[in-house]
Design a protein around this nucleic acid. Structure first.
Length: 862
RNA sequence: GCCCCUGUAGCUCAGCUGGUUAGAGCGCCGCCUUUACACGGCGGAUGUCGGCGGUUCGAAUCCGUCCGGGGGCACCA
């Protein structure tokens, strides 16, 4: 596809991302670069995107996560894989329903129950069409190379089919069941929640001790939820508790009611806590529910679904919090309050969606029986079929998966996958698969499934399961899952449960790569209330997508949180500009990318090819471990320090000379390779530059660089290292002496050998002329002597300070190493190589010391 | 209560299996219109590696302990 090498377009002196990004992205998509091809012979590399909420917009965490996935998949494509990066969105049941409700309240002034179910769901789809999916456009801004032809939505027909299929499969296997249990109920959203959807927070409440009964047979209980006493059906004590043994089996009158409740013995009670006696409200507390089951106690529900009291009498209709105050007041008046502790810090569960205090409530719901599924999910990681990166986060996975309790999957909502169970007029129930028709007269269960139920199927439902598709065969199990450690439980564990079950024990992914949270410049969590949330899109607008991507990847150490700040992005933008100008320089100087490399390379050319080879190998090794930060750091410093600061400067010597053709070819090779290495991280600027440099179609489909060990050149590396040492040292001298960088200084060099031309060029040293008089002589670290004619303008004090500093460093070095070698324990026990190294350092220190001392002695005494 | 992570330069972080004068980015100081780039170049300063103790010839790195941050799980009547 290469066209004839074009005339090098005149690049402006600055990279302007806004002008190239949009058109480039559209071009990539149109050319089908991101479209997977299951029929190709190439091996598969697949990633499914963690589906963002259809309501969502791109936040900085997405930007990080997607930058990682894009880098991995772009690199895989260049390495010759058939890449599928599958995009899509989650229907986000509760979140969307709440948004749509609010929207309808604002636009039509109506509430949810003013609509029929069908009307409401239709409104939700309208809402989705109009406002949903904003994030998809933003992903394009970031440059995500996803396969848009395979975009999925969790409420799509195909995915719904998958949901119904697996529900039936689990139902038939008795792994889904319906039962009345204590669930987490949100009195605002009017739905059940899973344990994972409840956030616990310590809050100041009250601990009230209440005396039940009178005299010898009375018993004092402590509670933070006095209002639930109306539903008490027992008092429990520990069976071994001597204080209460005589009361076990007796009945005690329940205050404010005319009921008498039994005192029961239960191991669950901690005799050391409070009074050692617990009021038991089986219908409003999970532990009490268990006690109630063990003792066959009545389960008395005393609140409605909005958490208002339903017991006839003075408290009827009161909200639970008002009821708490009223009931404590009534008990106090009745002389039943023994103690009150206020504030009393204790954990309270909140709805993760709307922050309302969750009400534990006895309720008939659908559940997934997780025991065998969770065992399989744990084993898949234990036996190495799935790797968790970084390994340090594996314990957290096991903490979740090994302690998993049955999962409440039904939600009293309308937006979502409706439970595929129907009831006969006689009350029988049956589950029907997607291809089955329930008998007429049967009615479907009213509830929908937890959003995470369909997300759990994502790695295979998106590939066509339960149909036996080419996609499913080729891309499952997916290669790697990239997601935040904060979502391990919500999503990763559940994909493992269902993936292993549905796909014949094949896990949904081979590796789970967990990243951390993006925090603000000071490592603080971003939140609206703190006001420290940053919008990646404003940064993309200002600095370009590549700058945002690169700055995020620069901080991305596996599993660790990272800070981000606008200054980081500026730095990354500057880096892109550096690449821009390096390529611009190369093109202005006739860099060539065609044909073989010169057979003989020497000096800087040999050195940079040797370094390039090492950098390729290192980059590959780091990518295998998902060390994005280290890849970014490596390429940043190679590009900036070695290529730009040294190689380009050195190349300026030979470019006009007789070796120009060879250097032009090496220069082209270096830039070509560097741009390919960087493309997965900074796709736009590399595409712009690489196509301009090479005239080829696109770096997106270019080949990933391969290390070539034949380029290793130890001598050239040593030669350039020596040049760098001499140049740095003389520059420092010049700087200390106040000699301007541009000033040319006559000089005589001794011992510089092949490096002399380079040293002269970089230091702007001219050949000694007729009246050359060495007024300064520097013997540098490599033994190279540089004599300079500064016409007697040496600043002796500055020079003495400089040399004295070097002298003390050398003395310290000498002493450290001499001490080591003088230690028989060290020489006796340390490995050969370490001793040799110390000896070499000692010798070098001695030489330095002599050299510096001589220079000091040569200074005129002022 | 159990478990995990973490404390390194002003800030944010690398330094894994112990062995150069402990590094980077940003910031800071000085010099510079040197013909790719001032979104730049060159030079420079800055750390008793949280404290104490131990293992070792040798500890930022391993062990113990204490102090300080962050997080997960369970319980919280």
């Amino acid at each position: 596809m290469t066209s004839t090498p074009p005339e090098p377009p005149a690049l402006p002196t600055q990279y302007l991302p806004a002008e190239v990004e949009g058109p480039l992205y559209e071009q990539w998509v149109e050319r089908g670069y991101f479209t997977a091809d299951p029929s190709s012979d190439k091996p598969a590399f697949s990633i499914v995107i963690p589906p963002p909420n259809v309501t969502g917009s791109l936040h900085i965490g997405h930007a990080l996560e997607q930058s990682m996935m894009d880098a991995l998949s772009r690199r895989a494509r260049m390495r010759g894989f058939d890449v599928l990066w599958l995009p899509g969105m989650d229907h986000a049941s509760i979140a969307v329903q709440n948004l749509v409700e609010r929207h309808l309240g604002e636009t039509e002034g109506k509430g949810r129950f003013d609509y029929t179910r069908e009307e409401f769901v239709a409104k939700a789809w309208e809402w989705k069409a109009e406002y949903g999916g904003k994030i998809l456009g933003q992903m394009r801004r970031l440059g995500d190379g996803v396969d848009w032809s395979r975009e999925r939505f969790t409420l799509d027909e195909g995915l719904s089919h998958a949901v119904q299929t697996i529900f039936k499969k689990l139902y038939d296997a008795d792994l889904i069941y319906r039962a009345e249990r204590i669930i987490n109920w949100c009195p605002r959203d009017l739905t059940a929640l899973s344990d994972a959807e409840v956030d616990h927070a310590d809050e100041p409440g009250e601990l009230v001790s209440i005396r039940y009964g009178d005299g010898e047979t009375s018993i004092v209980v402590a509670t933070t939820r006095a209002e639930t006493m109306l539903g008490d059906t027992a008092v429990a004590v520990h069976p071994d508790d001597e204080r209460y043994r005589h009361l076990i089996g007796t009945l005690v009158p329940l205050p404010l009611t005319n009921r008498r409740i039994p005192i029961v013995a239960d191991e669950h009670v901690d005799p050391a806590f409070g009074t050692g006696a617990v009021k038991v409200t089986p219908a409003h507390d999970p532990n009490d529910f268990e006690i109630g089951r063990r003792h066959d106690l009545p389960m008395l529900t005393v609140m409605d679904d909005r958490a208002a009291i339903t017991v006839p009498g003075p408290f009827n209709g009161l909200d639970r919090l008002d009821a708490r105050v009223a009931i404590v007041a009534a008990l106090r008046e009745a002389g039943r309050i023994v103690a009150e502790k206020r504030p009393y810090e204790h954990a309270v569960g909140h709805c993760s969606r709307c922050d309302t205090v969750v009400e534990p409530r006895l309720s008939l719901q659908w559940w997934v029986r997780v025991e065998t599924l969770a065992k399989a999910a744990g084993d898949a990681v234990r036996d190495g079929r799935v790797t968790i990166e970084p390994a340090s986060l594996a314990p957290r996975y096991f903490q979740w998966v090994d302690g998993l309790r049955d999962w409440c999957i039904s939600r009293q909502l309308w937006w979502g996958h409706r439970i595929p169970v129907w009831y006969s007029p006689d009350g029988d129930d049956a589950c029907f698969g997607p291809d089955q028709t329930p008998p007429s007269g049967w009615t479907q269960d009213e509830d929908v499934l937890d959003t995470w139920f369909s997300s759990a199927l994502w790695p295979f439902s998106t590939l066509g399961w339960p149909e036996d598709t080419a996609e499913l065969r080729k891309y499952y199990p997916t290669t790697v899952l990239v997601t935040g450690y904060d979502i391990l439980f919500f999503w990763v564990v559940r994909m493992m449960l269902f993936g292993l079950y549905a796909m014949e024990d094949q896990p949904p992914f081979q590796t789970v790569m967990l990243h951390g949270l993006v925090r603000d410049a000071h490592g603080k969590k971003m939140s609206k209330s703190r006001g420290n949330v940053v919008d990646p899109l404003t940064w993309i607008d200002e600095y370009g997508a590549d700058a945002v991507r690169f700055s995020l990847l620069q901080g991305a150490n596996p599993g660790a949180d990272q800070a981000i700040n606008e200054e980081w992005v500026v730095g990354a933008r500057n880096f892109c500009n550096k690449l821009w100008n390096a390529t611009r320089f190369a093109m202005l100087n006739g860099a060539s990318v065609q044909g073989e490399l010169p057979a003989e390379v020497a000096g800087a050319d040999a050195w940079i090819l040797s370094r390039l080879n090492a950098v390729i190998a290192e980059t590959d090794a780091l990518y295998e471990k998902f060390e994005f930060a280290k890849v970014a750091d490596l390429l940043y410093h190679f590009a900036w320090d070695e290529v730009c600061d040294w190689y380009l400067e050195l190349a300026k010597i030979s470019l006009p000379g007789p070796g120009a053709a060879g250097t032009r070819r090496v220069l082209g090779e270096v830039l070509d390779t560097l741009l390919r290495l960087l493309h997965p991280m900074v796709p736009f600027v590399t595409e712009t530059l690489w196509t301009a440099l090479t005239g080829a179609e696109s770096v997106v489909i270019a080949q990933w660089p391969a290390a070539d060990p034949s380029h290793v050149d130890v001598d050239a590396e040593a030669q350039i290292a020596a040049v760098q040492a001499v140049v740095t040292e003389v520059r420092r001298f010049r700087s200390d002496q106040g000699v301007k960088p541009s000033q040319r200084v006559p000089a005589r060099l001794v011992g510089a050998d092949a490096g002399e031309a380079a040293i002269r060029h970089l230091l702007r040293l001219t050949e000694p002329d007729g009246d050359f008089s060495a007024t300064a002589s520097l013997t540098t670290a490599g033994g190279v002597v540089v004599e300079l004619d500064l016409s007697g303008t040496i600043d002796v004090a500055a020079e003495r300070a400089r040399l004295s500093k070097d002298l003390s460093a050398a003395q310290k070095e000498l002493a450290t190493n001499a001490a080591k070698l003088g230690n028989a324990e060290f020489t006796g026990k340390a490995p050969e190589a370490v001793i040799a190294k110390v000896q070499a350092r000692l010798a070098a220190a001695k030489a330095d010391l002599a050299r510096i001392q001589a220079a000091l002695d040569a200074l005129p005494t002022s």
